[in-house]
Computed example of a mutant assay.
Amino acid sequence: MNYWLFKSEPDDYSLLDLKNDKNSTVRWDGIRNYQARNLLRDEIKVGDQVLFYHSSCKNIGVAGTAKVVSSPYPDPLQFNPESKYYDPKSKPESPRWVSLDIQYQQEFIKFVPLALIKATKALEEMVLVKRGRLSIQPVTEAEWNIIMKMAKLV
């Protein structure tokens, strides 16, 4: 099992939205960054754990967790001309973009703000701290455990 951080703007889709979705499962789609796409396609596996991160909002940080419940599959939005994620260069026989399904696990007892993560010496090598812009990022088991302690879940 591996650990990941998935970013979402809560005005678009929040942890609460995931929790309230039917079966608390949703397709994670619309990824249009090749590095993030490669992680979805090649690295992330069913059963992997996800830190659900709220970005581009007043309270930036980790709100809770989810888990990966499907293998990657072609992102259907890339084929829809009415979608903002439409890619005219992508073809059904050779899709460029993938999505997968995640399922709600838990909301943190204590929201873990980015400022606290950045101020924690043990997290100074975390991808979020060093190269924070990527929408999907690997998280080490040690980093995961520290975030869980910050959230008062361990």
Results as ranks from 00 to 15, higher is better:
Glu9Tyr: 02
Glu9Asn: 15
Asp11Phe: 05
Asp11Leu: 12
Asp12Trp: 04
Ser14Pro: 12
Ser14Phe: 07
Asp17His: 07
Leu18Glu: 06
Thr25Ile: 13
Trp28His: 04
Ile31Lys: 13
Tyr34Phe: 15
Gln35Tyr: 15
Arg37Ser: 14
Asn38Arg: 15
Leu40Tyr: 00
Arg41Gln: 15
Leu51Thr: 00
Tyr53Arg: 02
Tyr53Asp: 02
His54Asp: 09
Val68Pro: 01
Ser70Tyr: 00
Ser71Val: 01
Phe79Met: 05
Asn80Gln: 10
Ser83Gly: 11
Lys84Asp: 12
Lys84Val: 10
Tyr85Val: 09
Asp87Ser: 11
Asp87Ala: 08
Lys91His: 13
Glu93Tyr: 10
Glu93Leu: 08
Leu100Arg: 04
Leu100Phe: 13
Asp101Arg: 05
Ile102Arg: 02
Gln103Glu: 09
Gln106Cys: 06
Phe111Tyr: 08
Val112Met: 08
Leu114Tyr: 03
Leu116Gly: 04
Lys121Gln: 14
Glu124Trp: 04
Glu125Thr: 15
Val129Tyr: 02
Arg131Ala: 13
Leu134Glu: 00
Pro138Ala: 05
Pro138Phe: 02
Val139Asn: 02
Ala142Phe: 06
Ala142Ile: 10
Trp144Ala: 05
Met150Cys: 08
Met150Thr: 09
Met150Ala: 10
Ala151His: 00
Leu153Trp: 00
Val154Ile: 15
